[in-house]
Design a protein around this nucleic acid. Sequence first.
DNA 1: GCCAACGTTGGC
DNA 2: GCCAACGTTGGC
Length: 179
Amino acid sequence: MAMKISTPHGEKNESKGRMAMKRYWLVKSEPGAFSIMDLAAAPDQRTSWDGVRNYQARNFMRDDMRIGDEVLFYHSRTSPGVVGVARVVREAYPDHTAFDENDPHYDPGSDPATPRWYMVDIRLVRMFDHAVSLKTLRGIPELQAMTLLKKGNRLSVMPVREEEFSLIVDLATQTGQPT
DNA sequence: GCCAACGTTGGC
DNA sequence: GCCAACGTTGGC
């Protein structure tokens, strides 16, 4: 009997011996809570992306994020914009901060036997010399389909198209960037 | 600091 | 299952 392989998106990215397709993401953080400077200063320039308490964001991390995927690091609220790139270095595992009643993200509904919340680990790849501001992103026609730019969007972990990722990295590399 | 938009909760 | 109330996010 032949083994059937299916994934949430119907892609054969786990067939044996086949290279998995690399994906691109964007994660948000309020710099007051955890900034890209904090990531740069962390041991091994690495952190667990804990505290996500939104099911859609959790599903992206738990079901779709793979080691090697690249991640745009976005600062929200304070001078909002993309400030650098990170990489997924560990795939989803239970977010233990949900079990800690002293943690601000404690969730009494999540118990260790059946964890409700998951996190991945990311490592800094590069910090941009010049942030690509939200205002700049809004001015670029090719980026208008991004979830990030949708009105009222509050997702803190979201997929990004490869072309969007590349374009934003290119913008960060250009000089004379309006801020 | 304001407030619109959103996700979650809970009464019914 | 509906939906009003509530707490949170995040741009401005």
